[in-house]
């Protein structure tokens, strides 16, 4: 913790399929998030989702993003263009420069 620059890293968060509406219609956000969570563990995607709920989301309808402490059904989480299921789901440990894309399923046709 001597070097404060190491306390956080920069990641890109993107939204698709209408989720951007919960984030002030912004499709792409550059976030600086702490490298460690409250318990001193390395920040993972589960932490990122909590962090976004507490600090980023403007819309009070948080239940359209998170349900039961995790991303709600119907949202795919993609870590560097791959389904998070291929990367360890919410236990994936974030690193500087990561791209996390949240995609809401569409049903129209």
């Amino acid at each position: 913790m001597s070097d404060p620059k190491n306390d956080e890293f920069a990641i890109t968060v993107e939204f698709s399929g209408g989720l951007e509406m919960l984030f002030n219609n912004e499709r792409k956000l550059s976030l600086k998030i702490p490298t460690k969570d409250d318990s001193g563990e390395r920040s993972n995607v589960a932490f990122l989702v909590r962090y976004m709920c507490d600090n980023v989301i403007k819309d009070p309808r948080k239940e359209l993003f998170v349900l039961d402490d995790t991303v709600r059904p119907g949202i795919l989480v993609l870590i560097n263009d791959a389904d998070w299921e291929l990367e360890g789901e919410d236990q994936y440990e974030l690193k500087d420069g990561d791209n996390i894309l949240f995609v809401s399923t569409l049903h129209g046709g």
Binding site: R72, G74, G108
Partner: peptide, 17 residues
Amino acid sequence: VYPKPPPPESIETCGEG
């Protein structure tokens, strides 16, 4: 890919959206 359906209030049709 989608084991659980999305909550119905999150769904918009082309007529609405």
